[in-house]
Design a protein around this nucleic acid. Sequence first.
DNA 1: CAGGATCCTAACCGATACTG
DNA 2: CAGTATCGGTTAGGATCCTG
Lengths: 135, 135
Amino acid sequence: MRPDPFQRNCGSRQVIDRIGDRWSVLVVLTLADGDRRYGELAEHIDGISQKMLTQTLRGLERDGLVTRTVHASVPPRVDYALTGLGRSLLDLVSGLESWATTHLAEVQAARVRYDADLPRRSPTGTARPTRPSRR
Amino acid sequence: MRPDPFQRNCGSRQVIDRIGDRWSVLVVLTLADGDRRYGELAEHIDGISQKMLTQTLRGLERDGLVTRTVHASVPPRVDYALTGLGRSLLDLVSGLESWATTHLAEVQAARVRYDADLPRRSPTGTARPTRPSRR
DNA sequence: CAGGATCCTAACCGATACTG
DNA sequence: CAGTATCGGTTAGGATCCTG
């Protein structure tokens, strides 16, 4: 029986979920160029909280995509790096990044068009979920 | 100034967020082979609720990835299809699917290994989120 | 420096009921 | 059939404080 992400309990869906995680993609991309320290990751990924960074790294480590190396020094130093498995994902993930930057303008234009049409369809102004813009 | 997903307010991060959505990938994949009715989508994507399906479709429509066609008939019939922009995403998304199915075993093995080491680090067994299978 | 532990709110999401 | 509206539990995730 081959994995089928359309089936509820198939593990492949969990894998998709991890990749589809809000921060995983950005972390993996940051590690593309080589090892990074915890603090470097935190600095490079604007807006990520310490909690989410740690949580994301643990998840990636658990899934075998990232290694965590603790150097016994003072102050402590922890390096993160992609595993072979993690690097195998790199093409896909950077493809995602470039798709996003390439088609960003189109997507934004589509949004403007869609939102402009909304008033006609919901007369009383059924408020959209109102993405409350981070912060 | 080019879009940089590492910057907090860059739109490209919103695009990544949409792709990284729990259901968007599955919906796009389902539409890969051609138009689908609302009910067909619901049936094919196991475990999605009607609310999430609608919400996901609206999001994809808003971003210009999917079209929604209402046929004036009784009973009503609504077809969804990928736009050109949506199809441009297809390679990436199906790449994601095949990566997931290909490396599923490795990921699961890594998890087992990681979890086996955990007891030594968190004695009380910090339970995983435990995705609750609905019903 | 690299996190662990807590607290707390907002967003997610499923279940249910209702409508054109 | 294809939704919308609403309620309520669950989770995500930021802020803050603390430690080796």
